[in-house]
Amino acid sequence: MSLIGKGILKGMGVTAKNFFQSYYRKERLPTVEYPEEKATINQFSRNFPFLLYDGDDPVDGMRCTACTLCERACPPQCIYIIKDKDENGKAILSPRIFDIDTSVCMSCQLCVEVCPYEAIRMDSAFELSNENRFEGLLLNREELLKPNAYYHEIHPLEARETDDRMAAKAALAEAKKKARQKRARLAAKNKPPPGLKKTPPTRKKPPQREKSE
């Protein structure tokens, strides 16, 4: 240390460099002045969950089947589901009440991971402040339901993957259904006339023969 203050001067040089470059180099001034200007949110970011529906009517197109898997997997237990019932008191596969308390939700995404029907996804909206801290942050079914188009808008990549997966699943289910119908039709066609109904026992003969031999 030959000259006292040399280190400080060097440091000042760095500060000056940063200061002047901040006028013309983007990486020296990465901040934006919120709220006048908003930084873009990337499509992978997550905040609070919402429910998806297909088609135009939120309640009819609701994907959720009230299986309560997400309710059980939620670490702070902020999801509340009550299953719907029809007039005869029989349970139908959709929730009558689906509440998420976003003041408790910890944005962990575990509910999304367990849902087998791709019905719940993470939103990326962030300006959610509310005057009413109890009811205002407790989102009910109607507030949570958002169309698939909205999902495509905020998470395009993920939404496309989800759609592909659902299409594949639907195709598989369709193929299975068709196979089942075909089998049923074949069975109906090959159904022997009532008189010849004794055929099955003849098939069972080999073991008997083995036994006798």
Binding site: M1, I4, K6, G7, I8, K10, G11, G13, V14
Partner: peptide, 9 residues
């Protein structure tokens, strides 16, 4: 490091 490590303070 230029900014800090040699800084006398």
């Amino acid at each position: 490091e230029t900014l800090l490590t040699e800084n006398e303070i």
